[in-house]
Simulated assay, not measured.
Amino acid sequence: MHLKRKYGDRSDWNRVLEREYAQSYLETDLFKGYVSLLKIAKVKEPLYVKYFDQNICLVNDGYIWLQQFPLGKQHSVTTMFDERGQIVQWYIDICSMNGVSEDNVPWMDDLYLDIVVLPSGEVIQKDSEELDEALLHGTIDQFLYNLARQEVNLINSLIKDGSFTLLQLSEEHKDMLLQKIQK
């Protein structure tokens, strides 16, 4: 089985022409794991997605992507900030595991399912059919399929009752990593 591994530095992302990057390992009462920050200075072209009837820009000059990789968890959260520092969305990837590469870059192995949380509070479920296809084609086994479904249910219930702390920590983690870049 081969899952898509996504790295915090997004070094393979050709859309981004100029960038700054910082990361840290954190161990606090609320979070244990890696956080990475991609400060996007210049892009080839902006990236838009359509949710319902609105087009939302996810990447453009001046945008910041913060990624949180909690150790021992089956998810990773990317918070996308616009050029004014306003949150555009939280993108929660369900993954089989988070880790760190030999050259110390955090990564996660993507399990297809995603949850988008908009600042308005709207929650969007994504890619359920991709998870089903991965099981059907043998890309993942029943264990990983069940793991993904259980994790998405857990996170949805945490979001619903306001206790998914990574959403609340995103501003704090962004500010901390921005200080590393600006030094």
Rank of each mutant, 00 (worst) to 15 (best):
I140S: 05
E129F: 11
D175G: 07
G85R: 09
V77Q: 13
Y7W: 13
D161W: 05
D53L: 12
E133P: 00
K32P: 09
N55E: 14
K126I: 06
Q74E: 09
L113V: 13
N146L: 12
R15K: 15
R5K: 15
C95T: 08
M108K: 05
D29Q: 05
E102C: 02
T78S: 14
V77D: 09
P70E: 13
I159Y: 11
A148Y: 08
Y91R: 07
L144V: 00
E102R: 12
K39R: 15
R19H: 07
S128T: 10
F143Y: 15
T79G: 00
H2R: 15
K4N: 06
E133Q: 07
Q23R: 14
V117Q: 11
V43L: 08
L167Y: 11
F81N: 03
I94R: 02
R10E: 01
T139M: 08
G8Y: 10
Y25V: 04
T79E: 07
Y21L: 00
S128N: 11
D61P: 00
S120G: 05
W65C: 03
Q142N: 08
D103N: 15
S11G: 09
S170C: 14
L167T: 11
E45S: 14
Q86H: 07
N146M: 05
W90V: 01
G72D: 02
L47F: 13
K44G: 04
N55V: 06
R15N: 13
E45F: 12
A22T: 07
S24G: 08
R5P: 03
I92T: 10
H137G: 06
I155C: 00
L58S: 01
P46M: 04
I64C: 04
E133F: 05
K39Q: 08
Q179R: 15
F52K: 15
L166N: 13
I115T: 11
D53I: 08
S76C: 14
I155G: 01
F143Q: 10
P46L: 11
V88Q: 03
E18S: 03
H137D: 14
R10D: 00
E133K: 06
L118C: 03
Y91P: 06
D127Y: 01
I40K: 09
Y25E: 10
K50G: 00
Y145D: 09
L147W: 02
E171G: 00
Y51F: 15
S157Q: 14
L177R: 11
V43K: 06
V43N: 05
S11T: 04
I87E: 03
L147H: 06
D9V: 06
P70F: 02
Y112W: 06
M176A: 05
N156T: 12
D127Q: 02
H75M: 09
V59M: 09
S157L: 10
R19F: 04
E122F: 11
L66K: 13
I159D: 03
E130Y: 15
I124W: 10
Q74G: 04
N60C: 06
I94E: 00
F52I: 02
D12G: 12
L167F: 08
N104S: 10
K160S: 15
K73R: 13
G99T: 09
I92S: 05
Y7D: 07
D103F: 10
Q67R: 15
L177A: 06
I56T: 05
R10I: 04
P70R: 08
N146Y: 05
E20Q: 12
E83W: 02
Y21I: 00
Q23A: 03
